[in-house]
């Protein structure tokens, strides 16, 4: 009898064990699955490589060329005669090329002051990167600009035309909707407007982006300048909306600054945003994949 019971037990186990195993194939897969550390990274922190006037931590991957067309119109409070600023426009044409995901080089030409600019953007750390698990992305941007405007009243050598800026960009994607960024910045102008003006200027920028839909984000950007004398300059403040349409990002914004490079809008903004000195502007970026991704 005992032997029969034992046999029955074995029989039962034969029937039920495979059935149990079969139920759990997918669960078994899930428990065994390895995840590539790269998959934990947020796919992007911001929609575009520019927040509004300044850079974001966003860089394109290897072999991507980004063509940027940016406009800043005149002040809205100049009235109907100037068509609320639309009659005047400053333009910047720029090219950003990502040699590697962590290394982007860029050049640009601004109609304001007939200025050329060039920058190098180096990714130091990526949010969610394996090993460190630090929830922020860190990027370094150094920018140089040459003002080529002819000024007959002043002997202008190359030295006087140069301005530099250096920035750390620290950004964090907080969740699916929001991202924030801090930008400690140093700007050096070889030539300042006033005799008592400072050549070196420290500023701290702060920016944010908030997702409205999968393709539309709201953005804001503010730089606080740490300076003794303002000499009529103000802190640049901007609000914008990013619309992404595939290979293009359309960025529409209102800002109190006319210039579009760090060496310009940080030390030389003159508009008082809350007094109506608002410029409407836009950036349009177009992406070209020049080399195949790995």
């Amino acid at each position: 009898m005992i032997r029969k019971a034992l046999l029955l037990f074995f029989l039962m186990s034969n029937f039920f064990l495979p059935a149990g195993a079969q139920e759990n194939l997918l669960d078994q897969l899930k428990s065994e699955s390895k995840t590539d550390p790269d998959w934990k990274r947020p796919t992007s922190t911001f929609k575009a490589v520019r927040l509004i006037n300044g850079h974001t931590v966003e860089t394109r991957r290897k072999g991507n060329l980004e063509f940027l067309i940016s406009h800043r119109f005149g002040r809205v409070n100049t009235g109907a005669y100037q068509f609320f600023g639309m009659d005047q426009a400053n333009m910047r044409l720029g090219l950003d090329y990502s040699l590697e995901e962590w290394l982007t080089l860029g050049i640009g030409r601004n109609s304001f002051n007939k200025m050329y600019d060039g920058f190098v953007k180096i990714g130091i750390h990526r949010q969610g990167q394996s090993k460190t698990n630090l929830p922020i992305s860190i990027v370094w941007v150094s920018n140089t600009s040459v003002n080529t405007l002819r000024r007959p009243e002043l002997p202008m050598n190359l030295e006087r035309r140069l301005r530099y800026s250096h920035q750390f960009l620290l950004a964090s994607k907080l969740n699916q909707l929001a991202a924030i960024q801090l930008m400690p910045t140093y700007v050096h102008q070889n030539l300042v407007r006033e005799r008592n003006g400072e050549n070196g200027l420290f500023a701290l920028g702060a920016g944010a982006s908030y997702r409205i839909t999968r393709s539309v984000h709201l953005t804001m950007e503010y730089y606080h300048r740490f300076t003794n004398g303002n000499n009529g300059n103000t802190n640049p403040v901007s609000f914008g909306v990013d619309i992404e349409t595939g290979g293009h990002v359309f960025q529409l914004h209102i800002t109190n600054s006319q210039e579009m490079t760090e060496t310009g809008f940080i030390p030389s903004t003159t508009g008082d945003f809350f007094n109506g000195d608002i410029h409407f502007g836009f950036n349009i970026t177009r992406n070209f994949q020049l080399r195949k991704p790995n």
């Binding site: 495979p18 059935a19 195993a21 079969q22 194939l25 997918l26 078994q28 897969l29 899930k30 699955s33 995840t35 590539d36 790269d38 998959w39 796919t43 394109r60 991957r61 290897k62 072999g63 991507n64 595939g246 290979g247 992406n287 994949q289 195949k292 991704p293």
Partner: peptide, 22 residues
């Protein structure tokens, strides 16, 4: 599983590779 015919697979979405990174 050849005995039961059970088949399961798991596709990590982020592992899809496109000709354009964007």
């Amino acid at each position: 599983n050849t005995e039961t015919g059970s088949l399961a697979f798991l596709v990590p979405i982020k592992a899809f590779r496109f000709p354009k990174s964007l």
